[in-house]
Design a protein around this nucleic acid. Structure first.
Length: 577
RNA sequence: GGGCGAUUAGCUCAGAGGAUAGAGCACAAGCCUCCGGAGCUUGGUGUCGCGGGUUCGACUCCCGCAUCGCCCUCCA
């Protein structure tokens, strides 16, 4: 989906919200006229005009759109809903011949059945919009910064980071498609104690490598990669680090290793299809004096105070349960200190909204950051946190042991190597982010219905194959001009498919508004099912060339949506599988 | 003890004011003279955790309770 491309022809259209919205607006106008007519001829008591809601009913027997207006009006009219509905129905004048049928049903719904031609217009819209079908303007150009992954450069990315990466990247795509201006940022915790510990861990392994008898502390990093880093340093420096003061040696190991690991993280993310606009260094904040300045400013405001030799932030003023330490008694700043400066910096860069994506175990941090955002003079509404629940890695239903202590965690790279990037990205998005995710490696590799990624991609490959075959039949080169007779499309399965297609822009817009990327894969799975159902019942290619042209026009529209939807998710849309 | 999240079919999960609450898996039975069977069709199961409230109408919103998970460091 070409989110960043020129969108002139879309703006030129009467609506940016898709054909379905246009149909709804026309229906609203009809209803509105009917109500006013009722007011004028005295059949209805004059009341304030309520919002006219239209929904797409689940059951096709309930029409294409249902209005609850009669039930809403019933109480103020002091008449039964169905009676009100009847009055409205009598007053509706469908001059544009939009409706095939309208009827009263259930407790007082008015169900509208629109003409097939309305739905056929959806196909034209899809073809005209092509790779921007699904885009909307609901973001109105707002600037948004999404910070995600932001794993410490003390070890490789694990599978949990993968979920964060998939959600963050997809959310960014969805927002961009909805006319938000989005920048993606990775915050590098390249300062402080954990980097120090990293250096120490590597240095100890280095000494071990050179024959020293070491006692490897429990709180040092345990993974095998620490030994590999020590080996790498050894190859460059030989025994050189043994001859300089230990402090310098540790500092060297810290710098060297953090930078190596960060490069590996960048490579992993690149291979996972995630590209950041900014890599923001925590150390950079210290170097620029931003952390000190933030602390001094808040001291002046008496939001930061001294107690027991430490500096505390009065987060309780902002609803936190206790105050938090910013600078410890030993003079070392906590993460919180740089986070104050960091979030202040983000907002000063002029973003309307900043979004942080964190693991759910950090939820206790929300109050703190919200407090410092307010304390530094920003509105807390500009800040939003998305908490992502944990990933449980399984293999054939059995949990894969993941112990941080023993350094046995499953790396994102290994998972991607085993199941593929498409499957990994898709599966990470098949749960709401606030629901824990069981990620089963065997299921991820399986090519069946419990693995939705292939189910959806298969649609793309299948349609591609049909189009290829159609081109090969020289007599009927598919021409998608105005010559296509869309009235040919009247089978129930065809209309169901087109209606499903018409929902895509609303799905993307809703997904952007609620910041819920999972809506896209769920929709695509439904579209795929609707398509397969159609495909198994009707042949696209036949001797009826007029019908064939119309059907080709339709299925290639399906292909456009599948491609656009997968693109949002960073998943490929293969021509063949 | 406090905070956050969750609780929907046997399992994994969608649904966030509307009508008879859905999908996949699993189970059973069918569909290839056919454009890709990595597919389709047909079968049924739910006190939507419990109890109140709001309203024309609640799985959905509000309050209380129960259970589960995570968090409650001068940790990162």
């Amino acid at each position: 989906m070409g989110f960043m491309k020129e969108r002139k022809h879309l703006f030129a259209r009467s609506s940016q919200n898709g054909t379905m919205e246009e149909i709804k607006n026309k229906l609203r106008a009809l209803i509105c006229q009917a109500i006013k007519k009722g007011f004028e001829n005295g059949e209805l008591k004059q009341v304030l005009l309520p919002e006219i809601e239209l929904e797409a009913p689940k059951l096709s027997a309930h029409g294409d759109f249902a209005a609850n207006i009669a039930m809403v009006l019933a109480s103020s009219q002091k008449r039964p809903p169905r009676e009100v509905a009847q009055i409205l129905l009598n007053s509706i004048s469908d001059t544009g011949r939009l409706l095939a049928k309208a009827e009263i049903a259930g407790p007082g719904f008015i169900n509208f059945f629109v003409n097939n031609a309305c739905w056929h217009a959806v196909l034209k819209e899809i073809h005209e919009s092509d790779d921007i079908y699904g885009c909307s303007d609901i973001g109105r150009g707002q600037n948004v910064l999404i910070e995600f992954v932001s794993a410490n450069p003390t070890g490789p990315l694990h599978i949990g980071h993968g979920r964060g990466a998939a959600v963050g990247d997809t959310l960014a795509n969805i927002l961009r498609a909805s006319e938000y201006k989005v920048e993606k940022e990775y915050y590098i915790n390249d300062s402080g104690r954990q980097i120090q510990t990293l250096g120490l861990s590597v240095f100890l392994r280095y000494r071990e490598l050179h024959g020293a008898d070491i006692d490897f502390p429990h709180d040092c990093y345990q993974g095998d990669y620490i030994r590999e880093e020590a080996q790498a340093i050894s190859e460059i420096k030989g025994r050189g680090l043994l001859d300089i003061p230990a402090e310098e040696a540790v500092a060297f190991c810290a710098r060297f290793t953090a930078s190596t690991i960060l490069n590996e993280i960048k490579q992993d993310l690149t291979d996972f299809g995630v590209r950041f606009d900014h890599w923001f260094s925590e150390q950079g904040l210290f170097d620029a004096g931003a952390v000190d300045k933030a602390i001094q400013d808040l001291k002046k405001k008496r939001i930061i105070y001294e107690k027991d030799g430490a500096l505390w932030f009065r987060t309780t003023d902002f609803g936190d349960e206790k105050d938090r330490v910013v600078v410890r008694a030993n003079g070392i700043t906590t993460y919180f200190a740089s986070d104050i400066a960091y979030h202040d910096d983000k907002l000063r860069r002029g973003f309307d909204r900043i979004i942080d994506i964190w693991g759910a175990d950090h939820h206790g941090y929300i109050h703190r950051i919200s407090a410092c955002i307010q304390a530094t003079g920003h509105e807390k509404e500009r800040f939003k946190v998305i908490l992502i629940q944990l990933v449980n890695l399984l293999r054939g239903g059995n949990p894969v042991a993941m112990s941080t202590r023993a350094g046995e965690f499953v790396m994102l790279r290994d998972v991607v190597d085993e199941v593929g990037r498409d499957a990994a990205r898709f599966l990470f998005l098949t749960r709401r982010y606030d629901s824990p995710l069981d990620f089963d490696l065997e299921v991820a590799k399986r090519r069946s219905n419990d693995n939705p990624v292939y189910y959806v991609q298969y649609v793309h490959a299948r349609i591609s194959s049909i189009l290829k075959k159609a081109c090969a039949r020289e007599a009927e080169e598919p021409c998608f001009g105005d010559t296509v007779d869309l009235m040919q499309l009247k089978e129930p399965e065809e209309l169901a498919l087109i209606k499903c297609m018409s929902r895509f822009p609303a799905v993307v817009a809703e997904s952007a508004r609620l910041m819920e990327p999972h809506r896209v894969p769920f929709y695509l799975t439904e579209l795929a099912a609707t398509f397969h159902n159609y495909y198994n019942k009707h042949k696209v290619l036949s001797n009826d060339l007029v019908l064939t042209a119309a059907r080709l026009y339709m299925v290639s529209a399906v292909r456009i949506i599948v491609r656009n939807g997968l693109k949002l998710m960073g998943v490929s849309a293969p021509e063949s599988m």
